[in-house]
C-alpha cells in the first residue's frame, strides 16, 4: 500500500531514455521515448522498426514517430533492442 508504483509511472520515468517496444505481432521498435498518453500511444525519436517477414528480418529507420498504443504488447525500458 505504501510504495505502490503504477505501471505507467515506470514508463514515465523512461522519458528521455531508450525504450524497446514489442508489438502483439512480429514487429518491434526501439527509440528514445519523448512522451505517451493514457492509451500508451507513444512518441519516439530516432526510431528503428524491426519486422520479421517470410523474407527475413527487415529494419527501417524513422524520425519522430507516434506509435499507436493499440497494438503494443510489452515495453522494455532502457534497452537498445533486439540487436543487443
Amino acid at each position: 500500500m505504501a510504495s505502490q508504483i503504477l505501471p505507467l509511472e515506470l514508463i514515465d520515468r523512461c522519458i528521455g531514455s531508450r525504450i524497446w517496444v514489442i508489438m502483439k505481432s512480429d514487429r518491434e521498435f526501439t527509440g528514445t521515448l519523448l512522451g505517451f498518453d493514457d492509451f500508451v500511444n507513444m512518441v519516439l525519436e530516432d526510431v528503428t522498426e524491426y519486422e520479421t517477414t517470410p523474407q527475413g528480418k527487415k529494419k527501417t529507420k524513422l524520425a519522430q514517430t507516434l506509435l499507436n498504443g493499440n497494438n503494443i504488447c510489452m515495453l522494455i525500458p532502457g534497452s537498445a533492442g533486439p540487436d543487443t
Binding site: I15, S25, L34, G35, F36, D37, N41, V43, Q64, L66
Partner: peptide
C-alpha cells in the same frame, strides 16, 4: 516541462509530410 506527448507531436506534424503505416504493413 517535457513537450513530447502524443498531442504535442500531432500539433507539430499537421501540415507536414508523414508516413502512415497500417498494421497490415
Amino acid at each position: 516541462t517535457h513537450t513530447g506527448s502524443p498531442t504535442d507531436f500531432l500539433k507539430g506534424v499537421v501540415g507536414k509530410r508523414v508516413i502512415v503505416r497500417l498494421t497490415s504493413g
